[in-house]
Design a protein around this nucleic acid. Structure first.
Length: 464
RNA sequence: GUCCCGUUCGUCUAGAGGCCUAGGACACCGGGUUUUCAUCCCGGCAACAGGGGUUCGACUCCCCUACGGGAUGCCA
């Protein structure tokens, strides 16, 4: 058996799109589970729209998310001679011809075809003219006029096209540069690609590409056309729907592994399992099980998957991951006397690292943003609870969670007060809101000095 | 228009003719734990696009219609 080689072939006309990450992922996983190679090819033949910045963005992001190519990526823009040579080979075999139809003429032709209710396509009018090359001619592939061409697809089975539906596509532009289809076919051959896994928007390109392969005498490839990632309106996911580039998700605090998990589950599943890591995918993924219909990208699912991956992290891994998000808001994670306790009790407070980092602010910074509603609900009755608690806490020397809880409980029993009446004002004093881990724990995380200071601060604030 | 691909809960999906009273997960709603929040646990809501066949029997097979997407470039 021939070694499996897959490739991801983005054009650098934008940053790495999450749909692209998914395509790359399936290519990567398929290669790895077959002990094969995963390659990357930059399709930058569109000089107008391609930039080196986008290329770098794509390559860097692929690498950092772990979809590392097994060979150095190649650029189509540097391989012109190879394509020209291939085109010459097709000319020699008699499977291509020069055509001098002007863009205007073609435009006119299409309009007439549409008006006549026909499919707009090049009608082959120059095919038998025996034209020579000049600065106005393009090279066209002479597509077989009769018969069918069958695409064998791992996901969809066999898809048949009538050759009569296919027009003679352009191989070389009038300026002599090769087009997408030619480059694509030649490179897949040159790179030894065996399996093409790409979006379903390429299905109708496939029969055309097979004709080029045939003209060149290349072997048949294996195909798998993935369903598209859609937005909520069932159209291809775009910036209108949600963030589309990978970096945005990362900067919001979604774990790479969670993004990969979510993308893999979009169109594929395995029993009742929801949580998958890259290694699981290499073990369990089966391209033949991929769904045929497009799948809507659902942010809430990503959030949940992220929370699962977050909770699977060890404390050290978690700290490592959240560190950049904390330093972004000027917090040094280690600048806390009870870091591990704090992190462990707060790590499930939100679904993203960015959200958790924000909820950690009261534990590191002194300026509190008091929740006005909470204050009016729990602190507006002129009671002496805060003063009482302050005095109570002042007398506790053994500052432990259990001790603190006991002290609070006996105060509350003694005064015959409902628990929230006692606890919530303290929470507000400590964190600015009524949200925090259990109160004894929260107090022990803050430590005696800071706890008392915060209670004093709130008393002052209320007296203003 | 033409060709191609699709269509199971709001969303991701299970389902290869009887196992389906259509299962799981997210979301949502309710309850419990935490006398806060989050986590966690329990429960609930909710779908086979429509119509014809084939069959003893169809979510599963065939046809038609509808709807959605893609392709129809000297873009990739």
């Amino acid at each position: 058996m021939k070694k499996v080689v897959t490739r991801f072939a983005p054009s650098p006309t934008g940053t790495l799109h999450i749909g692209g990450v998914r395509t790359a992922l399936f290519n990567y996983v398929y290669a790895k589970q077959n002990d094969g190679l995963f390659l990357v090819r930059i399709e930058d033949t569109d000089r107008e729209r391609s930039t080196k910045e986008y290329e770098k963005n794509i390559l860097d992001n692929l690498t950092s998310i772990g979809l590392i190519p097994d060979k150095k990526p190649i650029n189509q823009s540097e391989r012109n001679e190879i394509y020209i040579k291939a085109a010459e080979k097709i000319i020699e075999s008699g499977n291509a011809y020069w055509c001098d139809c002007s863009p205007n003429e073609l435009d006119q032709m299409r309009k007439e075809q549409i008006a006549a209710g026909k499919k707009p396509m090049y009608d082959g009018r120059s095919r038998y003219l025996g034209l020579d090359r000049n600065e106005k001619t393009v090279l066209r592939l002479a597509t077989p006029e009769e018969g069918d061409i069958v695409v064998k697809d791992l996901i969809r089975g066999e898809i048949a096209f009538k050759n009569s539906e296919l027009d003679d596509l352009i191989l070389l532009r009038s300026d002599g540069t090769p087009t997408y289809h030619l480059c694509n076919v030649v490179d897949d051959f040159e790179q030894g690609v065996t399996t093409v896994i790409r979006g379903e928007d390429h299905i109708s390109n496939t029969p055309r590409q097979i004709h080029i392969q045939n003209a060149l005498g290349y072997p048949q490839l294996e195909y798998a056309h993935l369903p598209l990632v859609l937005g909520t309106d069932k159209k291809r996911l775009s910036k209108r729907h949600a963030a589309t580039n990978l970096e945005e998700y990362r900067s919001q605090g979604y774990l790479d592994s969670a993004i990969i998990n979510t993308l893999a589950r979009l169109g594929w599943s395995k029993g009742d399992n929801e949580v998958f890591y890259l290694n699981d995918l290499i073990k369990d993924f089966n391209i033949k099980e991929v769904q045929k219909a497009g799948a809507i990208f659902d942010l809430t699912k990503l959030e949940w998957v992220n929370s699962q991956h977050l909770s699977n992290l060890s404390i050290d891994e978690f700290k490592q991951h959240i560190e950049p998000f904390l330093s972004k808001i000027d917090i040094d994670i280690e600048n806390h006397s009870n870091v591990n306790l704090l992190i462990n009790s707060m790590r499930s407070s939100e679904n993203t690292l960015e959200g958790i980092a924000k909820s950690l602010i009261p534990y590191y910074k002194d300026e509190l943003d008091y929740d006005k509603k909470a204050i009016s609900k729990f602190c507006s009755d002129n009671s002496t609870i805060l003063d009482d608690i302050k005095d109570l806490l002042l007398n506790i020397d053994n500052w432990t969670e259990d001790n603190l809880d006991d002290a609070l409980k006996s105060y509350q029993t003694e005064k015959n007060l409902p628990v929230p009446k006692v606890n919530q004002p303290i929470r507000i004093a400590l964190t600015g809101s009524t949200k925090s881990p259990s109160l004894g724990l929260t107090l022990s995380i803050f430590g005696k000095g800071l706890s008392i200071k915060r209670i004093e601060d709130l008393i002052t604030h209320l007296n203003q």
